[in-house]
Design a protein around this nucleic acid. Structure first.
Lengths: 150, 150
DNA sequence: GTGAATGCAAAACCTTTGCAACTGG
DNA sequence: CCAGTTGCAAAGGTTTTGCATTCAC
């Protein structure tokens, strides 16, 4: 069976982004990627490290950081920053925002409304080039908000 | 002459947020706030510390952090986070995004298009309560982009 | 007067780095 | 084979904390 990571590389390397051609497939890199794909939540580097360590006890935290950086640069993973907290990592490549609940700490992916565009509400100066756009929201998720009111 | 900070407190304390009534006006707090209002750029805590030290050599970095935190909590100042870089601080209270140029490192405030709303493009689950929404963009500013092309 | 804020130094925290050993293509 | 990657430990930068002293109200 072809691993998800190999699939992704094939998919990606046929797109305009050729940066993945040079990605060397080490055990650690594949493991870190698989850890992210398996749960599809938003773990921090340390959490990825803990989960990885269960499957490969020799892996080091520095390597996890390394792999996450490489995967981000290759566009296979997104780095998520909400405030000053430790970065989280997310394998959802579709354009989306992140919402973190201030009570249960859960991170949610928030999609765009139909045909909406992320940058459409902003009055950007003519000639500006946007490479990254990150949207982070904080508040109470529907569940915690309902409990709060009750 | 009434200081800008005192003015702001008066303005703010008449709004629904009564949190400012209890703000004790220390020399350091006022200084940190004035430093932010004077330049209206987006300094980091360390930069605020350096500028503050010029006017009050005894002020400590911990106190600057303290004041920035207090002023943020009181809603007089916004904390700006772009990626993993050190937080920056901004006295612009209008809803806006931040754009940082990857080349010149300048931070720009980006306003909303006429009548646009920040959260209008996002498909938020029913019942979610948003307390903070932060939009951070990175790329090339018009100036650096033009130079790049040339 | 008194609770809150300051200043200092030390700690905490997340992340990066230097370098010798190893490994995937 | 060998450039690129790993693992380890140590360093880096930002932010927070503990505590005695000082200050604003």
């Amino acid at each position: 069976m072809v691993s998800k990571l190999q699939q992704s590389i094939v998919v990606e390397s046929t797109s305009e982004n050729g940066a993945l051609g040079g990605l060397r497939m080490t055990k650690q890199r594949k493991l870190v990627y698989d850890v992210l794909m398996d749960e599809r939540d938003h773990p921090t580097a340390t959490e990825v490290y803990i989960r990885s360590k269960e499957r490969m006890s020799s892996i080091s935290l520095a390597t996890v950081y390394n792999c996450l950086e490489t995967l981000s640069a290759a566009g296979l993973v997104k780095q998520v920053n909400v405030g000053r907290d430790a970065s989280r990592y997310c394998p959802n490549l579709a354009p989306h925002a992140h919402f973190i609940c201030g009570k249960c700490e859960e991170v949610y992916d928030i999609g765009l409304k139909n045909d909406a565009e992320m940058e459409s509400v902003w009055a950007l100066p003519e000639g500006t080039r946007i490479d990254h756009l990150e949207v982070a929201m904080k508040g109470l998720c529907a569940k915690c908000n309902a409990k709060q009111k009750a």
